[in-house]
C-alpha cells in the first residue's frame, strides 16, 4: 500500500477504481433518498439496479448502441418502481414486504429473460460508453484523470446528485416531498396529493437505481451476468442512512464504500495466499460497522414506512 503515497500513477489508478466502484451505489443511494424522503422505504433498490443492468444489456444488444441500453435500462427499473408504488402506495401493503417481493421477482425474471434473449451471446461484449476526457480539467495532476476522464454516465451522476439536492431542498416540489415524508396528514390537508407525490418519488428513485445498473453494464463490464447487482442496492441503503437522507451526504458515504471496496481489491491482489473471501466481505462489514457506530444519531423521515390512508386511523 506504500506505493499509493509515492507513485502518483498508482494513486490515480486507486482513486479512479474507488470512484468507479462507488458510482452504481451513488445512483442507487440518491434514488433511495428521493423515495425515502417521501416516506416510502425502497428496499427494492437492489432489484432496480438489476433491472437497469438487464435492460441496459438487452437494449444495447438489440439496438447495438449504448443509448438504447440506457433507455431500456431506465425503463425496466421504472417498471419495477411502478410495481412497488402499486403495492406500497396503491394497495398500502407493508413497504418492506413489497420491496423484497420485487427483489425476488427481478432476480428470477432477469435471469430467465436474459438466458432467453441473450442466450448464447450472453458472454459477448456489448457496446458501451467509453471515457471522454474533458479538455483542461483532465490535465490536473492526480484528481484530473480521476474525475474528468470518465464516461457519459459518470458526468450524468455529477449532474444528478446536485440536481436532486437542489430539487429536494430548494424547490416547492421538494418541500412537498419532505412534508409528505414527515407528516403526510398536514401535507394532505394543504392540498398535496400524497399518493401522487409518492408515486413520482418511487419512479424517480427506481430510475436512478436503474442508471446504476446501466453503469454496471454499459460502462464497467459490458456484459450482463445473473445477479450482477450483488448486494449493491443494500449497501446503498446503508449509505443513505449514513448520509442522513441527504443526497450530498449519501454521495460521501458511497465514496467511502467505494474506497473500502477498492482497498479490499488491492489487498486481494497483493496477498494471493489469503482466501479472497476474507476481503470480499469488507464492503458489507464496513457498511454494517458504519451503521452501528453512527447508530442513535440518525433521524429518518418521520412517516417512513407508515402507510397513509386518507381519513385513516
Amino acid at each position: 500500500m506504500i506505493d499509493l503515497l509515492t507513485d502518483p500513477q498508482a494513486l490515480t489508478d486507486f482513486l479512479s477504481t474507488s470512484l468507479r466502484l462507488s458510482i452504481p451505489i451513488i445512483f442507487a443511494a440518491v434514488g433511495g433518498v428521493i423515495s425515502e424522503r417521501s416516506g416510502v422505504f425502497n428496499i427494492a433498490l437492489e432489484g432496480c439496479i438489476l433491472g437497469g443492468a438487464f435492460g441496459a444489456a438487452v437494449g444495447a444488444y438489440l439496438i447495438g448502441h449504448p443509448v438504447g441500453g440506457l433507455l431500456l435500462g431506465v425503463f425496466v427499473a421504472m417498471m419495477a418502481g411502478l410495481i412497488l408504488a402499486g403495492l406500497a402506495v396503491g394497495l398500502a401493503i407493508n413497504q418492506l414486504v413489497a420491496g423484497i417481493a420485487i427483489n425476488i421477482l427481478m432476480l428470477g425474471l432477469t435471469s430467465y429473460l436474459a438466458r432467453l434473449i441473450l442466450g448464447a451471446d450472453a458472454t459477448s461484449t456489448l457496446p458501451g460508453f467509453g471515457p471522454i476526457a474533458i479538455p483542461g480539467l483532465s490535465a490536473i495532476p492526480v484528481l484530473g484523470p480521476v474525475l474528468f476522464e470518465q464516461d457519459l454516465l459518470t458526468y450524468l451522476m455529477y449532474l444528478l446528485v446536485p440536481l436532486s439536492w437542489w430539487v429536494i431542498y430548494k424547490t416547492p416540489w421538494g418541500l412537498n416531498l419532505r412534508a409528505i415524508g414527515d407528516y403526510p396528514v398536514a401535507a394532505d390537508s394543504a392540498g398535496i396529493s400524497v399518493p401522487k407525490v409518492r408515486l413520482f418519488a418511487v419512479l424517480a428513485s427506481c430510475a436512478m437505481a436503474g442508471l446504476g445498473g446501466c453503469y454496471l453494464v454499459l460502462s464497467q463490464v459490458f456484459v450482463f451476468t445473473e445477479h450482477m447487482s450483488a448486494g449493491k442496492g443494500f449497501i446503498a441503503l446503508a449509505a443513505l442512512i449514513l448520509g442522513r437522507w441527504n443526497p450530498i451526504g449519501a454521495l460521501l458515504a458511497c465514496l467511502f464504500f467505494g474506497l473500502s471496496d477498492a482497498m479490499q481489491l488491492r489487498l486481494q491482489f497483493n496477498s494471493p495466499d489469503v482466501p479472497y473471501q476474507l476481503f470480499s466481505m469488507v464492503p458489507f462489514l464496513a457498511s454494517f460497522l458504519a451503521l452501528v457506530v453512527f447508530a442513535g444519531k440518525v433521524r429518518p423521515p418521520a412517516a417512513i414506512g407508515i402507510r397513509y390512508e386518507r381519513g385513516g386511523k
Binding site: 443494500f234 449497501i235 473471501q277 466481505m281 454494517f288 452501528v292 447508530a295
Partner: peptide, 30 residues
Amino acid sequence: LKAYHGMNEVILTILMNFVAINIVSYVAGG
C-alpha cells in the same frame, strides 16, 4: 441493535447475510 439502538433490522440483517456467506466461504476455502 434494534431493541436498544432503534436501528432498522431489515438493513442490518441483509448486510449480515453477506458477511456470513463470506465467512463460510473463507472457512471452507481456508
